[in-house]
Design a protein around this nucleic acid. Structure first.
Lengths: 215, 215
DNA sequence: GTATATTCGGAGCGGTAGTTCCGGTTGATA
DNA sequence: TATCAACCGGAACTACCGCTCCGAATATAC
């Protein structure tokens, strides 16, 4: 249950630190006002642009949208991937929290299914989250790895609980379920064939229901 | 029913033309022996490399594997995409033929499901096919478009037939079914999480079975 | 054997994208 | 207000990739 506290670097938490007030460590002088303003603008721009275009968007686009030069951008984030992680990790945390909440629901089956639907909504709305989930497991590097494992754990709990009460089949893995949902979103993301992930996820949920073994 | 005859350019069919013997048109002198040998080596290398690495592989890799320079490669194929199409289109044609065969099967439901399983096998084995199917509908350009539409039609027939006899639900589209299968393969293609598409496609098939309306 | 058109090969061009560097600017401090 | 460290901006550097170009090599025809 280490999903609550997150590893954030000194530089990045400086925003909330000086925004929320003086924290314990006084040895780091607060960030300059213009620097902090720019940092927030960069984060806003990055969130919007990454959500709309995904990870493949050039970094200049983020800089332009934020009204900032690329140099400024690299002052705040050592690399493009670091910036990407800063955005994605909060999205993952939201999902983790959602999964933990769902665990308290009465109907284990419906708890799993509604979470999967929400996962589909998020993944098809935020293109960067979709990208992150699609390659999760490839490059296990980055701070996202921990949070992603938390998400995996949360989904596994939902899945196990639903399987234990016979709501879904018990021979599917967490990776397979997430793979199906993320895959559906990936297909839905393609323009030109007018497909929404909703019905595809319905099909997946129905498929999970079928063949449920021991009630 | 135009899935049998395929549009091939003059240059590309020259291989089979001069290999099989003199054809009708005598105004085109047969390709030089070394050129033909290289063309075949390029096609072999391209198929292997694209299957293993997908479309994103640099063209130098194909050239190196074929033991030729990139200049030679571009002599035979005007662009990288053309080479890619030359490989993918035959794969698509195989799938179209498979879909047409499946239409003659006794059990419409099982015909659809076994085809989807085979589609999954192909897509997860040949990485280039997966790439092509994943972006099908985005760039409707290229000669693949026609063949891809043939494939869509074939799948639609299987789907309609299965829905008509009540084997599967009747509210899903062809794009959704292919999206689910291709999405599953996409997830399975990620190394590190050890997932095969088989069981995911099983889940999809079960999901299609459920909610079948009018038998 | 010679002539010639065809083909080969890979250095190089142009464009893209991530990252660095440094002169100019500006907010914080006294 | 004056001083200075921190910060800004974008030109430039590096790496990569698709593609072109042209002198060298060679298969084919006579």
């Amino acid at each position: 249950m280490s999903s609550g506290d997150v590893q954030t670097s000194e530089a990045e938490r400086a925003v909330t630190a000086s925004a929320g007030g003086p924290d314990g460590g006084a040895h780091v002088r607060p960030m300059r006002a213009d620097a902090m303003k720019n940092r927030l603008r960069i984060l806003d721009a990055a969130e919007a642009v990454f959500a709309a275009e995904g990870l493949s968007v050039p970094i200049d686009v983020v800089a332009e949208r934020a009204g900032v030069g690329v140099g400024t951008l690299y002052r705040h984030f050592p690399t493009k991937e670091a910036m990407f992680e800063a955005i994605v990790i909060t999205r993952l945390q939201e999902l983790v929290a959602m999964a933990n909440e769902a665990e308290a629901a009465d109907d284990p089956g419906e708890a799993l299914f509604s979470f999967l639907r929400e996962l589909g909504n998020q993944a098809s709305t935020k293109h960067d989250l979709l990208d992150a989930l699609a390659v999760a497991g490839v490059d296990i590097k980055s701070r996202c790895a921990t949070t992603f494992e938390d998400l995996q754990t949360g989904i596994r709990r939902l899945l196990d609980r639903a399987a234990a009460c016979g709501a879904v089949r018990d021979d599917v893995t967490t990776a397979e379920v997430t793979g199906l949902v993320v895959g559906a979103c990936h297909a839905a993301g393609q323009a030109g064939l007018g497909v929404t992930p909703d019905r595809m996820i319905d099909v997946v949920c129905d498929g999970l229901r079928r063949g449920a073994g021991h009630p």
